[in-house]
Structure formats: structure tokens, C-alpha cells
Design a binder for these strands. Structure first.
Length: 491
RNA sequence: GUCCCCAUCGUCUAGCUCGGUCCAGGACACCGGCCUUUCACGUCGGCAACACCGGUUCAAAUCCGGUUGGGGACGCCA
């Protein structure tokens, strides 16, 4: 019976929507400034942003700071910084709920006047005790309605509660999950205004979404149960409903809700770890959303292709390895000049001396295929950046043998005479000296040269490295290695 | 405990709307071959899933019911 009514209601909503399409599209991201922007929040923001951009609508940023105790200005700044880094620009805001208290009062007045709200003087301690008792007896821990009909006026230590209908059902016609039915009897008389006069979240969001003309409320799954209460408030106010879309949660590897203990959850931590914003965007959008088999999306493509219909219903597990892979992909795709400037803070952090951006770009270019983060790339660049390289002792012992002294001497000599120091020329020189003159395999000398030049056994192709380093540096390092080998030879 | 949601490879997912084209496709990770001056990149190949039970049907990953499992919500937090 209830379902029949609910179904009918849904049908009504659908028809209604077709007749009066909600134009224009206005979405919002409404974080509470109680910490940094985390992965989950960023994805919610992203979906809202993409949806608005896709429809040529507006994206609003609103700071939900009604929690006086936990909200901080640093958090606001951290969130804005992260939004900016990810490239999600907003068309209006940021709005602060603290600055809108008068507005909430107006709406509260309407509810009070129409009898949809009432004052309540139950103390928090008392409520807590009653909730616990109800739980213990297996009853729903909802407000028991004690003050409902006491006709209390305003006063100190009194809150304002919403008078929830006793019967009937409320339908949430979710854009992602489909219709969801709630018995109103399950809902309770939620607090709209605290005893200190500050509105609660559930009331403030409704007022804000109404007054900001939000057409689509796209938010986390964890808000599903709040939605019927909010719908009831809209109805009590006689205001039209926005459309709701609840996106599934992001879980940690243990399938529990993502939290700090699952590792880095702060967006900005990824910046510090040398991730590119487009990697995070691309990774995040694919958690819950897909477009056939495609994995790589530019932001432009996302705006073009993003729809709520393609968002899945089930929660997804956060997988940092795939993000790493994507970052490697975008590093390969980046142009070296850009990379060089992005690299700058990481190079400085490692204490390398300053080098020309053009030089850094050429060095970075040789490492694009083998770096998954900017941090990794910066670390790999030590032999490009430092004058005195640190040589791995094991590698030196193994490869800088006395038997290599002769080939090295010849290489040095040939290099000294070299007119051009580009890759093809260098390759020709080595070909001549090693293969033709000495009848040796290039592979024989490659590792020793690599150790001489980079101090280690892992690096980009030798000719690439030499071309970047330049004649003077190459010769200096080759001679130094030669000296080491001659010394070894004597022992 | 009550309410709500979800359920395809280890993970992200395609397919489910319109049941046969799916002994289930792609990607990450993993394993192996090739390429090769190291490491990577690239490339080729491999491993690996429709949670379970029942129903509807000539036919079910796709529809229905139940079970189990997982998640979320039950605040004068958001």
C-alpha cells in the first residue's frame, strides 16, 4: 500500500521533471572546514564540478561552518588551496554559513509560524540517557517527542525542533540510486536550531540550497538518510525540491570507510608526494564513474562525457597503485618545460644547486619514461644537478675495474676530440672506439661508463645522459673514474 | 538493535535499461616472452570474477524472491 503510494509519487516527480526541466543547472560543493580536503571530498567536488560544466551551469562553493567548535580558518584555506590545485574553479562563493544566520532565522520563523517547528527544553544529557535506554530495549533511538505539544516558547537552553509527520512515507527519487522510500515514522523530530541559536546542518543546507537555487544536490552516500528529513523541510516550507544524486563512498583496502589510517587521504599530500593534479582527477573520476573501457581522460573530455547515469551504485575501494600508474602516464605525457617548473620545489628541497630551467627540462626529459612521481624524478636527477656525484661503492668495485682503464683512456681521448656532443655523434664515437678499434661489445663498457657518469648502475640511456651533462662534465667524470681504475689496477 | 544502500577478476570497472552476440571485455597489480647499454618505457602473452540458494524462461551476469556478506545512517557533527 505504502509502496503503491510511493511509486505513484515517484511517477509524478518524473513527469513533473519532464514538464518543467530544472534550468539552469547549479551544483555546489559544501565542505565543512574541519580539516583538509580529502580524497572523498575531492571526488564529490569533482562530480559536482564536472556536472555543472557539462551542462554549462554554475558551480557554487559553500563552507558549512555551523560547527563553531571544529571549524577553522586554516581548514578553509587548505580546502581552497586543494580545489585550486586540482583546477576546480567555482562560479560563486565561497559562501560562509556563519554570515547567513539572519537568513536561517527567517526560514525558521516560517516553520515556527506554520506549526512545523516547536521549542524543546530537553537537556542533552537527558536525551542521551533516553537514547541509550531506547537502544538497550531494542527501540529506535529517536527523539520521543516529549516537548512536541508542550507549546513552549523561546528561552535559554531551548532548541527548535522540526515536527516530523507521524505517518506516510517520503520518497527520495535519487538520480544515481533510483527511488528510495522512507517511512516517516522512522524519522524523528530533528533539531533545527541549537540552544546557542546556531542552525544545525540539516536545516542550514536546506535553506542554503533553496536560496542559492541549487538544482542538483550531488553528495556522498552517507547523506542518504538525511535526505528524507530535508525533503520534509522543503515541503513544510512549500519550496520546490532540487534533484538529488548520492554518490557511493570510497573505502579503504579493508573495505572500511577511508580514513587517515589508510595512508594519505589529503589531496595536498599528493601534491607533496609529486603527483600531478590531472592524475588525481583522472583517478578519482574513475572511482565510481566510467565511460566504456576508457581509462585516460583529459579534463575537457571529462566535461564532455560526464553524466550521472554513468555513475555506479556500489562503493569502491581506493587503490593507490592505479593512481601511481596514472601519474607515471601523465609524467610521460608532460612537456619537459612544464615538468621542469613543477620540479623546482622538489629540487630545492633536495638541496641541489640552481640550474637553468632549460637544462632541467633536458634532464627531466631523459627521466620521463622512468619516473612515477616528481619526487622520484627529482631524486633520480642528482647526477645531473650535483657537481660532485656520490658514487655507489659496490658499483664502483664491480664495474670500474683495472681492465677498463684502456678502453676508458681511448674514450676520453675520442671525446676530447669530439666536435659535436649530441646523441648521434656520441653513439658514432663509441661505435668506432669500442666496437671497431677495440673489437669489444658495447655492453661491456656501458655499465662502467654509467657508473663513472652517474655514480650508479641505473640511468637513462648513456648517450642521452652524456648529451645533457655536456662535454666538460663528462670528461671530468670519465677522468676521475679512470684515475680510480688505475689505482685499482696497481693493487 | 532499527532504518537505508550495495554485490562481475585481488582492485577499478564494461556488460544488466531492450535475457541469447559473454564458457564474461578493458585497466591497475602480478607472472612470463620480446625489445635492450642498466633501469624503465613499449609490446606480446598468461593468471584471475558473474557471492549463494530458489524462481520465471526454450535460454539469466542480465528479470523476481530469499540468504549471506559488505557499507552507511541513527547527535544541540557535517
Amino acid at each position: 500500500m505504502c509502496y503503491a503510494i510511493a511509486f505513484f509519487y515517484c511517477h509524478f516527480l518524473l513527469i513533473n521533471r519532464r514538464i518543467a526541466p530544472m534550468e539552469p543547472v547549479i551544483t555546489r560543493f559544501a565542505p565543512s572546514p574541519t580539516g583538509y580536503l580529502h580524497i572523498g571530498g575531492a571526488r564529490t567536488a569533482l562530480f559536482n564540478w564536472l556536472f555543472a560544466r557539462h551542462h554549462g551551469g554554475a558551480f557554487v562553493l559553500r563552507i558549512e561552518d555551523t560547527d563553531q567548535v571544529r571549524s577553522t580558518e586554516e581548514s578553509v584555506k587548505a580546502i581552497l588551496d586543494a580545489m585550486e590545485w586540482l583546477g576546480m574553479d567555482w562560479d560563486a562563493g565561497p559562501f560562509y554559513q556563519r554570515e547567513r544566520f539572519d537568513l536561517y532565522e527567517d526560514f525558521l520563523r516560517r516553520l515556527l509560524d506554520s506549526g512545523h517547528a516547536y521549542h524543546c527544553d530537553c537537556s542533552p544529557e537527558d536525551l542521551d540517557a533516553r537514547r541509550k535506554a531506547a537502544m538497550a530495549e531494542g527501540r529506535k533511538p529517536k527523539y520521543d517527542g516529549r516537548c512536541r505539544d508542550r507549546n513552549l516558547g523561546p528561552g535559554a537552553h531551548r532548541v527548535v525542533r522540526f515536527r516530523c509527520p507521524d505517518g506516510g512515507a517520503t520518497v527520495l527519487n535519487d538520480l544515481i540510486k533510483g527511488p528510495i522510500f522512507f517511512e516517516n515514522a522512522e524519522l524523528d523530530d530533528l533539531v533545527l536550531r541549537r540552544s546557542d541559536g546556531i542552525p544545525t546542518y540539516n536545516f542550514a543546507v536546506v535553506v542554503d540550497d533553496i536560496t542559492m537555487n541549487i538544482s542538483h544536490v550531488i553528495r556522498g552516500d552517507d547523506h542518504v538518510n538525511n535526505t528524507p528529513r530535508q525533503i520534509l523541510i522543503y515541503q513544510a516550507l512549500g519550496e520546490p525540491l532540487p534533484l538529488f544524486g548520492h554518490v557511493p563512498m570510497i573505502l579503504g583496502p579493508d573495505r572500511a570507510r577511508m580514513s587517515k589510517r589508510h595512508g594519505a587521504t589529503s589531496v595536498m599530500a599528493y601534491k607533496e608526494m609529486g603527483y600531478l593534479p590531472q592524475s588525481l582527477i583522472n583517478y578519482l573520476v574513475r572511482l565510481g564513474w566510467s565511460h566504456g573501457d576508457q581509462e585516460i581522460f583529459s579534463v575537457g573530455e571529462l566535461i564532455e562525457k560526464f553524466t550521472l547515469e554513468a555513475v555506479g551504485k556500489s562503493a569502491s575501494v581506493y587503490n593507490p597503485e592505479k593512481l601511481l600508474w596514472l601519474n607515471g602516464h601523465y609524467i610521460k605525457e608532460s612537456n619537459p618545460q612544464e615538468l621542469a617548473s613543477l620540479l623546482q620545489p622538489f629540487l630545492e628541497a633536495l638541496g641541489y644547486p640552481h640550474r637553468e630551467p632549460e637544462y632541467v627540462a633536458r634532464a627531466a626529459h631523459t627521466l620521463q619514461q622512468r619516473s612515477k612521481t616528481l619526487v622520484e624524478m627529482a631524486e633520480s636527477m642528482s647526477y645531473y644537478m650535483l657537481d660532485e656525484i656520490a658514487c655507489d661503492e659496490g658499483a664502483a668495485k664491480k664495474f670500474l675495474k683495472g681492465s677498463m682503464a684502456d678502453p676508458f683512456r681511448r674514450i676520453v681521448q675520442a671525446l676530447e676530440e669530439a666536435e659535436h656532443f649530441d646523441e648521434p655523434s656520441l653513439e658514432k664515437i663509441f661505435e668506432r672506439v669500442i666496437v671497431t678499434d677495440l673489437n669489444m661489445k658495447f655492453g661491456k663498457v656501458a655499465q662502467p661508463v654509467r657508473v663513472a657518469l652517474t655514480g650508479g648502475t641505473v640511468s637513462p640511456g648513456l648517450f642521452e645522459v652524456m648529451a645533457v651533462l655536456g662535454k666538460a662534465t663528462v670528461l671530468k667524470r670519465m677522468r676521475k673514474a679512470l684515475a680510480y681504475m688505475e689505482q685499482e689496477g696497481e693493487n
